[in-house]
Design a protein around this nucleic acid. Structure first.
Length: 456
RNA sequence: GGCGGGUUGGCGGAGAGGUUACGCAGCGGAUUGCAAAUCCGUGUAGACCGGUUCGAUUCCGGUACCCGCCUCCA
């Protein structure tokens, strides 16, 4: 099967050709662990989880390596520790586990490797030393900076030129920089800050070097896919490229760059000041199932802004409920997901098209294929989730009562008792289906036994 | 100011240079004592102005508006 992906580096949709089909390698930038993941954090996780599943499907589960890091050294973490009085280690350990729990709840598989930045400090130091030796970096006042002018293609990924950026720069230039655009590889730590010994004194890495070092350690000089949110395109990914390509001029670093667009909430950027900021955990705690979050995410193509709305959430819930009901009473999952669904994904992750395919499978009654395809998209596990199951209650007495009332009403033409019972059941969250064949009562998710009792 | 992206029917949201996206809502019908659920049918929309073409919503150029990044950010 041919896979097409839009490569940010070339701005085109291209046929994906792995460097080694037996070893497809993908690196995705992971979270800085200082707080709960907000809803926006979930988008790249879900997008690249779909890609991971697709790559495993095409190349074989044993032939794909997916790396997603945890950034556990960062000044935001230091600030959080200072504010809360807790240790950095406690914060990062707790937050890391939260992230795994929350992303698991939205159906994301765990990557093959989840390196922590703090476990790769020696590799970073080595890489920085190498960059200095090669003339791409310089030490000054305990800092080490990357010499942007030493990398000719700097700015190519994001389509910027160094000169333009300097002209439009809004930041104050630190005195130890040779060039305003030079960025920090290593910076000194005071006694209160986490630090490691290095040739430039006790310090800590800058933001970008960790990904270069870990990608190199785990995936090599050249690998296939590097992903993340498009806000990372500049400066983070630009800097990664510069560091990695200068340190390893023989390698090509990432062949394909993939960037997902940002998330909005009810048409606006999610921000604390607008009061529309919430975490994945907030939604889960409100009773929004993880699959619903995932479904809404997948309903918009990854390269377009995704707007989270309550309307979408409700529609997604209703759709999944319908499919789960259909699949729950149907046959086991087919051996493979529907080719049409997979084909959509292979066309630059057209998840919206894949969902359209699911609708078709449902409409045409292909329950086995629907089930397999839902599972493939991570929208369903081995079993129908509890939230989608009809409550297990015995309503046979009510069925008998309603049937009897209806039978006599059909004779007497007085339907008042039937209507009373029907209203009672409906009010208690029971779906009432009456046909020539008889009466069928289906308790819905809002079933309330107490209300039935009071009207009995 | 620089860079990047977007503008599709009531709403959401795709693909394709010429043939139904799809979903939700709506409308009509079947069904029902009436409903509900279900099923069937139903919607030529593509910001604006040019250009290329036998033909463009789909390609090219411009205009308008919107969004993101350029500072920690997914």
């Amino acid at each position: 099967m041919e896979l097409f992906l839009t490569n940010t580096a070339t701005r085109r949709k291209e046929l994906f050709t792995p460097l080694k089909a037996a070893d497809v390698r993908m690196y995705v930038c992971g979270p800085t662990v200082y707080d709960r993941a907000h809803l926006g954090n979930a988008r790249p996780v879900i997008v690249f989880d779909v890609l991971y599943r697709l790559l495993r499907h095409i190349y074989g589960a044993d032939h794909v390596t997916y790396v997603r890091n945890f950034t556990d050294v960062d000044d935001k973490i230091n600030a959080r520790a200072a504010d809360s009085g807790r240790s950095i280690g406690a914060i990062t350990a707790e937050t890391t586990q939260w992230f795994l729990d929350d992303m698991g709840a939205v159906g994301a598989m765990e990557p093959d490797h989840m390196p922590r930045a703090t476990q790769y400090i020696p590799q970073m130091v080595a890489m920085i030393s190498d960059l200095i030796d090669k003339g791409h970096a310089y030490a000054k006042d305990g800092h080490v900076l990357f010499r942007v002018r030493s990398y000719q293609d700097y700015g190519k990924l994001s389509g910027r030129s160094v000169d333009d950026m300097i002209a439009g720069a809004r930041v104050e230039v630190a005195p130890f920089k040779e060039d305003p655009m030079d960025f920090v590889l290593w910076k000194p730590s005071d006694a209160a800050q986490p630090g490691w010994d290095s040739p430039w004194g006790r310090g800590r890495p800058g933001w970008h070097i960790e990904c270069s070092a870990m990608a190199h350690e785990l995936l090599g000089e050249s690998f296939d896919i590097h992903g993340g949110g498009n806000d990372l395109m500049f400066p983070h990914h630009e800097n990664e490229i510069a560091q990695s390509c200068c340190a390893h001029p023989g390698g090509g670093f990432a062949q394909v760059w993939l960037h997902n667009e940002m998330l909005q909430v009810e048409g606006k950027k999610m921000s604390k000041s607008l009061g529309n900021f919430f975490t994945v955990r907030d939604l889960l705690d409100q009773g929004v199932p993880g699959e619903v979050i995932r479904f809404v995410m997948l309903s918009t193509h990854y390269r377009k802004p995704m707007d989270w709305t309550e309307k979408k959430r409700d529609e997604a819930m209703a759709t999944l409920q319908k499919w789960y009901t259909q699949v729950g009473s149907g046959p086991a999952a087919a051996a493979d997901p529907d080719p049409g669904v997979v084909g959509c994904l292979a066309d630059d992750l057209n998840t919206a098209g894949a969902i359209a395919g699911l609708h078709q499978l449902s409409l045409t009654g292909q329950a086995a294929a629907l089930r397999a395809s839902l599972q493939f998209l991570g929208l369903m596990g081995e079993t129908v989730p509890d939230w989608a199951l009809a409550p297990q209650v015995d309503l046979s007495d009510w069925v008998a009562r309603l049937s009897a009332a209806r039978q006599s009403a059909l004779q007497s033409k007085d339907f008042s008792e039937v209507d009373r019972l029907k209203a009672l059941l409906t009010g208690a969250g029971v779906e009432v289906r009456m046909s020539k064949a008889g009466v069928d009562l289906v308790p819905g998710s809002g079933f309330d036994a107490a209300r039935l009792e009071t009207g009995a």
